[in-house]
Amino acid sequence: MSTTEPSTHPPGPETWAEVHSSAEFKQLRKRLRNFVFPMTVLFLAWYLLYVVLADYAHGFMSTKVVGNINIGLIFGLLQFVSTFLITWLYVRYANRKLDPIADKIREDIEGGAQ
């Protein structure tokens, strides 16, 4: 039969506060924030740089590099490359550094609640 609503009895506020102040959780949060915040700043800055160049530096972006391919097109394609690269880096980081701790904390909480 379908049991779509949560059937577990949620742990009380003390449990959450306790986990929240545990060293393990602090490490998880630090690792997540240390990766996603700088990376967000980085890709937004790189994107804005690209938009501003395409918007205001027409001469520079129109410089031909190979055949009819100019700097503007190369920078545009590099945005695709950087997006794919950051995606790959994040997945690798999350699988190695975040998931193991998160899984352990979750099992502790859910195991303890039953």
């Binding site: 039969m1 949560p6 506060a17 929240h20 959780f25 949060r29 979750r106 859910e110």
Partner: peptide, 23 residues
């Protein structure tokens, strides 16, 4: 504060999150 602590633990670990239905 208290609810935020719960929310942060849940959001980062997935504890107590909605599960898939089992049919």
């Amino acid at each position: 504060e208290e609810k935020y602590k719960e929310m942060e633990v849940r959001s980062l670990t997935g504890a107590g999150a909605e599960k898939a239905s089992t049919h």
